[in-house]
Design a protein around this nucleic acid. Structure first.
Lengths: 164, 164
DNA sequence: TTGGAATGTCAACAAGGCTGACATATTGTG
DNA sequence: CACAATATGTCAGCCTTGTTGACATTCCAA
């Protein structure tokens, strides 16, 4: 077959593929470790983090929109939102044009918690990127986007465009 | 500052870092989608998948070792293992040298389920790698390893070496 | 105007984490 | 040998976060 070219090097053993899957598993755990620890001290969980994260990313978003992004049932999300609203981290305003809708915003306290959780993750991510170098980061991003299915990619790119 | 060099290009805005975190979230969901669907049809969950996966990776592993890899309590793992043993997917043999230990193995049925779940993920991973190309894959692996904390990396590399 | 669709809330249940307490069997040590 | 430490399993009970079902409110279109 001669020297391996770009395409030929793409022949990967099951073992190499398995390692990639395991790497995703362990790395994802590494990324959620610190926020989980912070949340555990205040009777919140990862679900609260996700809600806070995406409300911060798209202030004024509706419950339905959040449901689509998170991929859970409205009942499940509602429970989380209720506690966040009760605790004064999220504000729910009745929609102006369609009163069935609720527009969600972070309060000052909500923004503060978001920043705290986000800082923890970003600090780690920044260190990760620094250690791996810019070319590795470009590859990382490329593989992750290829890994999403069409639906996830749509959600991802929509958020990205909104926060250009 | 002149032309950006490799290191200077590593200055990344919060927005870029955030996108990396979101990409991990959506990609991870993409990777677990299909196994989750399969498991849901048989009253199993992700916890069962993880146990099956790592028993397959390290046949004969002890309960304690599995606990360390998964990072859960023995009560939590035991509940999962008990159902898997009852259902004839996992076999628990009393240790030969230390009879307090239990060595865990997949039965034929367990191996079959592992293969089914694994195939789904590997097929997706293979397509992902093909789409992204070999250089991107190298970067992907590099970033993921940098993302793990020391403990995760130890678990990860131990498994990798065992299955060289 | 009225029936269906969209939106959100409440109630109840299950999976799978957790802690604490305790039993059992085995091993290693003084 | 006696006893402490280790490995595993189990029971009870808690929490978070997913699920389904039922229902109220609001909007819109026939």
């Amino acid at each position: 077959m001669g020297e391996p070219t770009g395409n030929e090097r793409l022949f990967l053993t099951d073992e190499q593929i398995r390692q990639g899957i395991e790497a995703m598993y362990f790395a994802y755990r590494g990324l959620t470790n610190e926020p989980d620890r912070i949340l555990a001290t205040m009777a919140y969980g990862r679900a609260h983090h996700r809600a806070i994260h995406f409300i911060n990313r798209a202030p004024g978003t509706t419950v339905t929109n959040l449901l689509e992004i998170l991929g859970v049932t409205k009942q499940s999300l509602n429970r989380v939102l209720r506690t966040l609203i009760e605790d004064g981290l999220v504000e729910s305003r009745v929609g102006k044009v369609d009163k069935r809708e609720r527009n969600l915003f972070l309060t000052e306290a909500g923004t503060a918690l978001e920043a705290r959780l986000s800082d923890a993750q970003r600090t780690r991510m920044r260190a990760t990127y620094r250690d791996a170098g810019p070319e590795a980061v470009a590859g990382f991003r490329k593989v992750l986007e290829a890994m999403m299915d069409a639906e996830m990619r749509r959600k991802y790119t929509t958020l990205r465009e909104t926060n250009s």
